[in-house]
Computed example of a mutant assay.
Amino acid sequence: MLVIVWLDISTNVWSEVVILSGLAAGLVTFILTVMVLDKVVSRSTERRWAPVTRLALSEFLHALADDELSEISRGHIVPRTLPVLSAQEAAADGGLHRLRLQVVDERARLTDTLSRWSSFLASSSSNETVLFHIADIASSLDDVRDAALEAEHDPSEARLTVLRTHIDAVNARLAALEAELRTRLAAVA
């Protein structure tokens, strides 16, 4: 803007080159809109929708919470985790099948909550990290399910090691999502 004003004061370029002056005005308008106006409107919208954002993020925390270990009313939330099966537990009657059922249940809980809130949360760029965490967890849960199926057909130690690696990844992602949700809730509060 300073260059444009300086050119206007020291020369009469803008009156001689009308097309260039229109392009310069458009560029300045675009930059001001992107750098100032868009951010002001975005912050205002986030403040206005903060109660709904808190509700959505809280619902995700509730969907993650282990009912036995968490005290949600006191703000103590421990995310549910998948059990890391030993070779004996995996070989036991139905151990891998129970794990697959738990994976399906966990994925259903997350995707059900996501289906209710995804369009709302996606409307704000500050919530995209939460959505990416959830997508990563859903993908990781699919990996656990597939590894459990493979381990059921071939219960070798190599297959069980792959399964444990996928379970550890899911559990780490669940903890990361819980931490991100707490951070976002603190920012919205």
Rank of each mutant, 00 (worst) to 15 (best):
M1E: 11
M1N: 08
I4F: 11
V5R: 06
V5K: 06
D8A: 12
D8H: 13
D8G: 13
I9S: 10
N12D: 12
W14C: 01
S15W: 12
E16M: 05
V17E: 13
V18G: 11
V18R: 08
I19K: 15
S21R: 15
G22Y: 13
A24K: 14
A24I: 14
G26S: 05
L27C: 11
L27I: 08
V28D: 07
T29A: 15
I31W: 03
T33A: 08
T33H: 13
T33P: 07
V34H: 15
M35D: 06
V36S: 11
D38G: 09
D38C: 12
K39W: 03
V40A: 12
V41S: 02
R43E: 11
S44R: 03
T45N: 14
R47H: 05
P51K: 04
P51Y: 04
S58H: 12
S58T: 13
S58G: 15
L61N: 12
L61H: 09
L61R: 15
A63W: 05
D66R: 10
D67R: 14
E68H: 04
L69D: 06
L69G: 05
I72W: 09
S73F: 08
S73W: 04
R74K: 14
I77N: 03
I77M: 05
I77Q: 02
P79T: 06
R80M: 10
P83G: 04
P83L: 01
A87R: 07
E89M: 03
A90E: 01
A92H: 07
A92P: 05
D93W: 01
G94C: 00
G95Q: 13
G95I: 04
H97R: 11
R98V: 00
R98A: 00
L99P: 02
Q102L: 05
V103R: 00
V104T: 09
V104I: 13
A108E: 12
L110P: 03
D112T: 10
D112A: 07
S115F: 03
S115D: 04
R116Q: 11
S119M: 10
S123N: 06
S126Y: 11
S126M: 11
E128I: 14
T129R: 13
T129E: 14
F132I: 09
S139K: 08
S140Y: 05
D143M: 08
L149C: 10
E152C: 00
D154N: 10
D154M: 07
E157F: 12
A158K: 14
A158L: 10
L160K: 00
T161N: 14
V162I: 09
L163A: 01
R164C: 09
T165F: 04
T165N: 05
T165S: 10
H166Q: 15
H166W: 07
I167C: 14
D168I: 07
D168H: 12
R173S: 06
L174Q: 01
L174K: 02
A175D: 09
A175W: 09
A179G: 04
A179Q: 04
A179I: 01
L181C: 01
L181R: 01
R182Y: 04
T183K: 13
T183R: 14
R184S: 03
A187P: 01
